[in-house]
Design a protein around this nucleic acid. Sequence first.
DNA 1: GTCTATATAACGATAGAC
DNA 2: GTCTATCGTTATATAGAC
Lengths: 205, 205
Amino acid sequence: MNKKNDQTSSTELKIFEAAREVFQAKGLEGARMQEIADRAEINKSLLHYYYRSKDKLFEKVYQLSIIRVIPQIVSLLNQDLPLEDKLRNFIDKYLEIIIANPDIPLFILHELNKNPTRLKTFMLNEIGKKITPFLEQLREESRKGNTVDLPAEQILVNIMSMIIFPFIGRPVFQTIFEMDDAAFEQFIYERKKTLPDFIVQSVMK
Amino acid sequence: MNKKNDQTSSTELKIFEAAREVFQAKGLEGARMQEIADRAEINKSLLHYYYRSKDKLFEKVYQLSIIRVIPQIVSLLNQDLPLEDKLRNFIDKYLEIIIANPDIPLFILHELNKNPTRLKTFMLNEIGKKITPFLEQLREESRKGNTVDLPAEQILVNIMSMIIFPFIGRPVFQTIFEMDDAAFEQFIYERKKTLPDFIVQSVMK
DNA sequence: GTCTATATAACGATAGAC
DNA sequence: GTCTATCGTTATATAGAC
């Protein structure tokens, strides 16, 4: 579409980055245009000059947050690998992506829950249709008796839950286990080492 | 404290129930006092008559949402049962509680993430201190070689992830698996039957 | 492109009649 | 207790100078 206009100005980028941080921390309704402007160190009216409205700015941030992360993850399931190797690789890389973007899961899911049809087509095409080969691989291995006897969807949900949820539940876990930030980081580091084994042992026979 | 004043008026209850629904669906900042009033079928100014301010109303809703659910769950871990029985019972009852209150996990965690110190004391006393016996039980069984070789905290996080996350990620899962509401309900029903076995087999040797 | 100043709208909150 | 009418504040958005 816009081939020539990829020299997005540095102001525009600074605004976008600031908006990403504020929206991810506070959500659409909790975010303030003034706070975004302050963090970007620009005048508030420049927000409107570049993005017209809060909703439009949010939409860009939201879509890019998803588009930058989802395809990366889905592609991990479409490599030509034996199930166990694929699982280990998937878990490892997925964790790395979340560690680099720990606020994104809750951000995406909170906004999606307020409006469940948002991005429906995107998700169906970019995730739904692209994971069917992996689900088929799971079913194939199940027929061969190589995995636990469970529908492929349940297995995938179990795996994704254990990867993602610790980051969403972080404030709870950190409090009840009395971990400071460093301890939580250590907890995640430990998880990165142990989770692949745990999942492989749980899923494969 | 207030022993006599437990004849909370029906208007007050209608407001509270409406507020619970709206806050859980939209969050603190996304909720509108007008929408709460509409849903409760009362005049907007009555909200202030009974609860003074939006923040105070929210605080009541938020605390009661948590207090009604957390102690129930924690107590399941403090029964005098062998590990396997306790796990099966915990998973089954926890799922039932969430099925009855599917919006609560995301609601709690979204607000907690915006303000991580909120309810810290409550969580530490009502969860943190009360789960240490269970963690100890896990460690004891681990020493005996009856469980997978993993820190107790990691095991508990794995279990809670698989119980809770499907509800938080519902819009995603429903879309990518092309499930309508009935199909998702069926998916959860299936999960209730299969998850205890899956977790027991994963955790215990 | 960037700023100051200001318009406009939304929302929470209050006053006061009944 | 419940209503109508209205206030005061805050936040988004725009106008216009530079």
